[in-house]
Design a protein around this nucleic acid. Sequence first.
RNA 1: GCCCGGAUGGUGGAAUCGGUAGACACGCAGGACUUAAAAUCCUGUGACCUGUAAAGGUUGUGCGGGUUCAAGUCCCGCUCCGGGUACCA
Length: 886
Amino acid sequence: MEYNFKQIEKKWQQYWEENKTFKTPEDLSNPRKCYVLDMFPYPSGAGLHVGHPEGYTATDIYARYKRMKGFNVLHPMGWDAFGLPAEQYAIETGTHPAVTTRKNCDTFRRQIKGLGLSYDWDKEINTTDPKYYKWTQWIFIRLYNTWFDEVLQKGRHISELTIPEDILSSGKEAVRKYTDSKRLAYYADALVWWCPDCRIVCSNEEVLNDGSHEKCGNIVEKKNLKQWMLRIPLYAERLLKGIDNLDWPEGIKEMQRNWIGRSTGAEVDFKIEGMEETLTVFTTRPDTLFGATYMVIAPEHVLVPAITMPGYKESVNEYIRVANLKSELDRTDLAKEKTGVFTGRYAINPVNGKRIPIWIADYVLTGYGTGAIMAVPAHDTRDFEFARKFGLPIVCIQEPDVEDRARRDRIINGDECWTEDGSYINSSDLSTGIDINGLNKEAGIARIIGWLESKGLGKAKVNYKVRDWLFSRQRYWGEPFPVIHWEDGEISILDEKDLPLELPEMEKFQPGETGESPLSNAVDWLEVTDQNGRRGRRETNTMPQWAGSCWYYLRFIDPDNDEQIFDSEKEKYWMPVDLYIGGAEHAVLHLLYSRFWHKVLYDLEIVSTDEPYTRLFNQGMILAFAYENEAGAKIPADQIEERDGRFYNGENGTEVRQIVAKMSKSLKNVVNPEDVTMRYGADSLRLYEMFMGPLDVMKPWDDRNVKGVFNFLVRTFRFFSNDANISGGPEDVEILKGLHKTIRKVEEDIGTLKFNTAISEMMIFLNLVYKKGKVTRETARSFILILSPFAPHLGEELWQLLGHESTLAYESWPGVNEEYLKADIVEYPVSFNGKMRFKIEVPANLDRDEIARKVLADERAGKWLADKSVKNVIVVPDKIVNVVTR
RNA sequence: GCCCGGAUGGUGGAAUCGGUAGACACGCAGGACUUAAAAUCCUGUGACCUGUAAAGGUUGUGCGGGUUCAAGUCCCGCUCCGGGUACCA
């Protein structure tokens, strides 16, 4: 029989759809559950690319395997459908984003269904559906009404916030201000990145190192706008600690740790000469206070105007003006060359009472620590550079641990910077009574902090790099905030019964020049009046795309629930997500934001687990071959001619080099999954994507290799669909052994997501089957079952040909019989001094001495033993024999 | 700069706890079938050397050292490539 994949795949996709084969079980009494989740896609107009089926196939194999092992499986799919492209398209063509989105979702759904993935389509969700974003708004309200209790390290309802007496007595406005300062979501003026091209605010994360917008590549600028912010740093410690217990790739865990950026040190207060206020700095090296010879504050520091002395106003203002003009690009470019300006003012070093100058420089950032530093040029490279440039004093306070005499002298004299540990010198003062001379770094830090705290001059402090999360965009196509700004300045939040607040119908989507969202033109929607005639405006910002994806895994549990965000019995049953697969590009942001929301929901007792995703796996990007000439210029793939394994530019015949690059339209090397399914079928596409290499690494697509797995499927079909190959009677011993080895290997590899080696093992078995020519019905049954998660259409078809009436999706996974795997005879490779020379078969039950005797007695051993004496014979059971000679 | 990965035949890749390097697949070569080609099936295939052959030897996992009976795997020092991050005090 011919392998007619088109007919077979269509038939079974229809069967699964009609019979709702993959409907999630309603019965929650089965203690074995498995929630297998893909990162849901943004349905772009371009349709599916080959990267999508990679992760989807992996989770599908896993989900199908778990069903066969008797688990209740939740395996859903949906659409992260808010986002810029649909809105951009609306601006250009007037097509409503909802229309574009619906069309794109339909395409994606159709394409995904063509891959034979075992999703429960009854659980499909779409972030742009008001029935979905109602609950995104609902969560926002909860964030707004939550404060973080730092003592309990826990989010609590705002009604449980204790207002200090002095604030209570200062009136309603003070209480409101205090309360707002504690909410996890707050509205504030924020200096934000603005992309003039997209006319959109970007989060710090969306701005690349060179100062360009990651989406469009244009240079962004700073702009002051009213924005919603989320206080994610309050959860920094919880988010950091939680990482340790997750079954995630170490690299991703490390990236999250770095992003959170915890550092320990101290805050130290410096008196400012002639002023009441003190200048507080954060430092990780309070032990180097004796080396602090000047201070630097950021250009945006609040004390700049007060600190600047009259004669210095002009130069300071000029410096600040220039610093503000600098885009991030300039700041990075000029990173090597430090700039700064003296304020004319001095501070007092608390450890020795010395006057030290206060400077302003943009190498000190407003957003980190207190926006001010004490500069220790002898032991900090940045301060060293700055001090050198502006001729500030450099005092070495640590004896460097270096052999090189000349280098040591340079360091001691302040001509070179020393950032390693060492024992302190010049670090005592009689007037203040502090002395750390002779100590090392650890002890020095402890003693200084103790001294600072006892004198009330400072305290130990932990700082985090992670900043407040900018949570609004000046866009139409996003979730509206359930917020009204009243004319008297009050902000009110919609009542839950009024949710969802739907987006108004509009015809023009052009954003304003000034940073106002298109929503500001929806007058009827925008303007509201309360019972007392007070007028207000709805929030015109919308939520960023992260919002919908932050919690979608929770809605999958109970997507049609109109009463609640989800049924909590169901939530308790299905959570946490057991396996979550997606691209590494979401390593930090999506996963961190999502964990943050989840922890808040956990604190509010809305979800039952502290972490959402138990096990995470990132698939590697699929690359493609590309071609470049001598000069490194890229040549489109469709112009390339191949001859004898070399590549030539078809236009002019010059030889070009084959390289591996990202798929791109300009290189003409984009692979469309539908082309592959047309030519070889969905099962081949699935199998190839899994066979290419390990799931987590980048790997290049090579069309030729698809033939390899296609061939395997053809051979499988041809053999098992032919009744003449299926025999009765007892099974061949080698086949039995091979089969059980294969079952075991495939099972192990599915568990560790090493699908490439699982497939290779099945290929080995099929080769054996071809060699033998016949298998029993029972063997055919087992092999078809273990192959079916990988090639489900083929699996179902063969299963039916074997005489079964219904789907194999819930058949139990074949067991491994260890009996068949035992060997009577073991083949040992025999090496002499580590070099393998020959192989010897010995009965499995021999002990080491007997094996050694047998090896030495073998005639082939003689050649290697001539005029040498045997020093030792190492026998590693079931592994190897090594004869050591002299 | 710092942090994290990686480097194995012509190609994608395999190798559990240190134990036969190159499984499986592609490609290539030879053969069978065919008028021929495609498809299919069979055989061979890291490099180098000896040999008509059978067979045997040397060498070999980015580079240089080391530990070990034994190193792709462990340790030390590099090179190159990829990802993240970037004046974070």
